[in-house]
Write a protein that binds this DNA or RNA. Structure first.
Ligand SMILES: [Zn+2]
Ligand SMILES: [Zn+2]
Ligand SMILES: [Zn+2]
Ligand SMILES: [Zn+2]
Lengths: 138, 138
DNA sequence: TCTCTATTGATAATGATTGTCAAAAGCAAT
DNA sequence: ATTGCTTTTGACAATCATTATCAATAGAGA
């Protein structure tokens, strides 16, 4: 049987308070900064459990880090993520869902699952980036 | 200026001879087995260059490894991957392309890129109903 | 051939993630 | 509340893919 600990609740709480995706390390340092003495390994375990239970979304950043986010809904959905500040928008994609199923079936594949994520620069980060891009490069 | 070395050609060659996606480590050991004394770091560099130049596709396995595959076309495309045997089918997805652009633009995002991969069991692996499972589960 | 410099590769370093295991804490039954 | 059993924790070590070093090697143009 699974036991209830303040550590797991702290992770759930911290994840819920975070805007966008966070890494295990990031969440641990956030918790640590706010005074929690929770251990790093515990944060990894708790996030893994949450993701496994479907209470958190997880994806891999382009750099290979595992990122987590509190799910606002238990329905299947995807994300539009700012690769600069982490701002995340949950998006629906019925068209993509049916497309994935169709293309898999057409090629004889079964048990199809899919990874669909859109990365970009959000509006505010786009402005900030524009300032930096102007001028001599390198 | 970029120089031509037998190492880069060996990587290109080995990648082209590989069915499905391979990791840098995997390709290196394959080369090593076939008698090539190429160094591991060089394989990493060559694969990175190929991917950067658009001559190779890359994606991250669910375990976080970077995998590479020789591109059969230079056009943007996606993959349908058997998570048991690695068989890969290149797929086009104009609908997904436009959808990704649209959803990004609608939310004020710029420089949108996307990750779209479909994992499943190919026809033959479905029959075999094997165990070695790789990839996102349902 | 002769420079000049990009490239290589053995190895060290990095860094995220997982394994270890004794100590601490949940939970159910006394 | 106490006991007893078991899960969970956390400091630390271990793993493992990837990157950084840097002296030695080898393209390529003069
Ligand atoms: Zn942003
Ligand atoms: Zn979907
Ligand atoms: Zn297969
Ligand atoms: Zn695409």
């Amino acid at each position: 049987m699974k036991r209830n600990t303040w550590q797991r609740e702290a992770v759930r709480e911290a994840l819920g308070q975070t805007e966008g995706f966070v890494s295990a390390q990031g969440l641990h340092s956030a918790l640590h900064t706010s005074g929690s003495p929770i251990g790093l390994a515990t944060v990894y375990r708790a996030l893994g459990d949450l993701a496994g239970a479907g209470d958190a979304d997880s994806l891999q950043s382009p750099e290979g880090e595992s990122l987590y986010r509190a799910c606002s809904t238990d329905a299947h959905h995807h994300h539009l993520i700012c690769r600069n500040c982490g701002l995340t928008v949950e998006i629906e994609a019925d068209a993509v869902e049916t497309w994935a199923k169709t293309v898999a079936a057409k090629n004889g594949f079964t048990q199809a699952a899919h990874v669909v994520d859109v990365f970009g620069l959000c509006a505010s980060c786009t402005q900030a980036a524009t300032v930096h891009v102007v001028g001599p490069q390198q």
